[in-house]
Design a protein around this nucleic acid. Structure first.
Lengths: 217, 217
DNA sequence: TGTAAAATAGGGAAAAACACCCCTTTTAAT
DNA sequence: ATTAAAAGGGGTGTTTTTCCCTATTTTACA
């Protein structure tokens, strides 16, 4: 085993990517074979330089995101080992990446020693799951099993439609017109959402809507 | 000039910080004297290891943010050269940091070569302003001169305080109590903000507050 | 095919939000 | 010293929101 393990870094943040490269090359047994700034670029590079042993995938990238890249790998190179590397610790993203076959999910604030350990784990064990991520997933499962609380509330189409309009400066009367409903029906949606989302005012609806990405700001 | 220039890295993202350290130490003429995970930690480290030639300050950190750190430096070590290093490219943050005396403002996605150049500029010229940042500031100035549109609206401390409370499920009466004001005065703040921010309802205030990062969701 | 659960709609009333008028005291600036 | 602006407070309305009821009409599905 004389050959060094090869790593590809896929991240649009150049400074981070290059810094990470320096770090990785300071680990013995590893070398960075190339760096790409988004998924599409990565695919091109892979065709040019060959597949690396591990690809470190950022999630948020322009043109082709980490998730899209993971989907592509799933279809075209299912054997490729990939580790997601992101600031984003939302359950949904983590779950999505792991389901798509990522061998690990690292937050960008981890300790370099742990990072090195994770690389080794992926090479020799095939995967690495950190405490933090595991706990996050367990939390999510707990909440789902209990009471559907947290972010496990499912809104119906019409409710979402109403929620979006509630996050504007329209009055309920205007919302009713917009939705082709009686103001009284809209009042019903309001009350049932107050109940379901555990809020006490329209402000609460707006905050919920933003937090859960029903609307963008 | 045989001595290397010393750099301190202040960033809570360990992996990034350590990677950046690797990168910096690959530049000739530079060495990282210490790494701190937030402003408070940085101040402690500085007392232990002495002041670096340049401190690289992340903006978003727990306990003591980059802005708070910059304020502290302003009061306690105004000669200290600092460069803000952040993902956040909102005008307000940039302006705030530069006003507080930061010698430069780098986005984390810059090219390592430019990064190295920026370090040199700060050491030898005393400052570095990138195209991107300069243009961003020019844009802001343009908008200010035109019509006060965009985000060029300055809110006073008390208005910001009110805005934040308006973005909760409190009633105006409760907000008044919280702010030790008469409900009528709060009503005045509401009206003047409606006017200033060009919104027609409290929902508008909330959306404005979120968009302009007065509140987090 | 009967029944439960959605979706729809209404009445009535209190509380909050909003609008437009006014005033005094304090602070800042010329 | 004078003036202007900012900060705090009031009166009196209208409109909107919120809450608590009830009652149809669909829709789903066992």
């Amino acid at each position: 085993m004389d050959q060094k393990h090869t790593i590809a870094v896929v991240d649009d943040h150049l400074l981070f990517a290059k810094s990470l490269t320096s770090l990785i090359e300071s680990f013995k047994g590893y070398q960075v074979s190339f760096h790409a700034t988004n998924g599409q670029h990565f695919i091109e590079c892979m065709q040019k330089y060959g597949a690396p042993d591990i690809v470190l995938l950022d999630i948020n990238m322009p043109i082709m995101s980490g998730i899209e890249t993971m989907e592509w790998l799933n279809d075209n190179a299912p054997e490729q080992k990939a580790i997601a590397l992101s600031m984003d610790d939302s359950e949904e993203t983590i779950i999505k990446m792991l389901r798509l076959g990522a061998k690990g999910y690292l937050l960008k604030d981890i300790h370099p020693k742990i990072f090195e350990g994770a690389l080794n784990d992926v090479i020799y064990n095939g995967f690495y799951y950190s405490d933090k991520i595991t706990n996050k997933l367990l939390d999510t499962i707990d909440r789902k099993e209990q009471n559907e609380t947290g972010s496990g509330i499912k809104l119906k189409d019409r409710e979402i439609e109403f929620l979006k309009l509630a996050c504007t400066e329209m009055t309920y009367k205007e919302i009713a017109t917009q939705m082709f409903l009686s103001p009284k029906t809209v009042d019903g949606y309001r009350e049932s959402l107050f109940d379901k989302l555990e809020v006490k005012s329209r402000i609460g609806l707006v905050l919920y809507g933003i937090k859960h990405k029903y609307i963008e700001v």
